[in-house]
């Protein structure tokens, strides 16, 4: 019941987000605005346990939710296969470049900020397991 109540909250916030983006003509999808609305909403303690239950349920199998849209790729197989080699190369290289650049900049700035705070290291909680199989 807790999770169902939380789902109702999430759906209401998504609907509010859709309403706001339409009314104001914002270039954001409704659910993203709903996410931003959820943050202040969680100041109400009564919402926390239901939202936590629903979030854990939905987020533990987030991958499943991308499958229906993903299968839609078959509709574009013709164009995709026409440029298959080049597209594969471009998508792979640009994704890796994006990951590397983000990690590099974020890590460097976080370390600098930490050093500026007086070198107080944050609790070590971030080391990969022995073989690293569980790291993203």
């Amino acid at each position: 019941m807790q999770a169902l109540r939380g789902l109702a909250v999430l759906l209401l916030l998504q609907a509010a987000g859709e309403g706001i983006t339409r009314a104001l003509g914002l270039p954001f999808p409704g659910p993203v605005v709903g996410l931003l609305l959820l943050l202040p909403a969680l100041n109400l303690p009564a919402l926390r346990a239901p939202v936590a239950a629903a979030a854990n349920l939905l987020l533990s199998h987030l991958s499943l939710l991308f499958v229906p849209v993903g299968v839609g790729v078959i509709v574009h197989l013709k164009v995709l296969s026409e440029y298959a080699g080049r597209l594969a190369l471009v998508i792979a290289i640009s994704t890796w470049a994006g990951i590397a650049a983000t990690a590099w900049v974020t890590q460097a700035l976080m370390r600098r900020a930490q050093a500026a705070e007086g070198g107080r290291p944050e609790a070590p909680r971030n080391h990969g397991d022995a073989d690293g199989a569980g790291t993203p």
Binding site: L10, V32, L35, A54, L59, L62
Partner: peptide, 13 residues
């Protein structure tokens, strides 16, 4: 997928 994206606010909060 919609409510799941909203739910991403929980770990952020």
């Amino acid at each position: 997928l919609g409510p799941a994206v909203v739910a991403l606010g929980w770990p952020l909060w």
